[in-house]
């Protein structure tokens, strides 16, 4: 792997972590989905998944919870975004389609945690889903709106600042 690319991946992963912590005072509102889709649009799927792995490990270390019941669903939840982007969206990228992916991603992220919470605490899955629904709605809507408004301008700045060879 090219050194420039490795450095770029490290910087962008740090950015992902910092913005999440900076916005942590507003639950379920963050730019993580927006940034993950932005990174997925320029890096290969393999690289995006690697960045997300580092991000989840760092995030878990920072939060003091190296717990597989949090880390595994968190990774799976975030990894869904680049996987869906590379398999469904990449060839016909459209801002409304991207925003819808963010919207769906908000619900997928919440639902992925359910089996792990059921295994860990024995909670009824229906009750877990009902209790989590408001937070999924908030995350999905904030994903939709941030992608709709910020994806295109951010991608322009991102494209101007980050040389294409640094992501290949």
């Amino acid at each position: 792997m090219h050194v420039k690319k490795m450095a770029m991946m490290a910087i962008l992963t740090t950015l992902l972590l910092i913005q999440e912590q900076a916005l942590s005072f507003i639950p379920n509102v963050q730019f993580s989905t927006l940034l993950i889709l932005l990174f997925a649009s320029t890096f290969k799927l393999r690289d995006s998944l690697l960045m997300l792995f580092v991000y989840v490990v760092l995030d878990s270390l920072y939060m003091g919870a190296l717990n597989p019941f949090y880390m595994v669903p968190m990774y799976l939840g975030w990894a869904t975004l680049p996987v869906l982007y590379h398999t469904l969206i990449k060839k016909h990228e459209n801002i409304y389609l991207m925003a819808t992916l963010g919207l769906v991603g908000g619900f997928i992220y919440g639902v992925i945690f359910m089996p792990f919470a059921v295994l860990q605490t024995g909670v009824d899955p229906r009750i877990y889903l009902m209790a989590d629904l408001p937070f999924q709605l908030i995350m999905a809507t904030s994903n939709f709106i941030t992608i709709l408004w910020l994806y295109t301008p951010l991608k322009k700045i991102y494209g101007a600042m980050i040389p294409k060879e640094a992501t290949q």
Binding site: I26, P27, V29, M63, A65, P134
Partner: peptide
């Protein structure tokens, strides 16, 4: 918001 105990007990939502 960081899952640390707080006496403030503020609700974790602005919605």
């Amino acid at each position: 918001a960081s899952y640390a105990p707080s006496e403030a007990c503020e609700p974790l939502s602005l919605s």
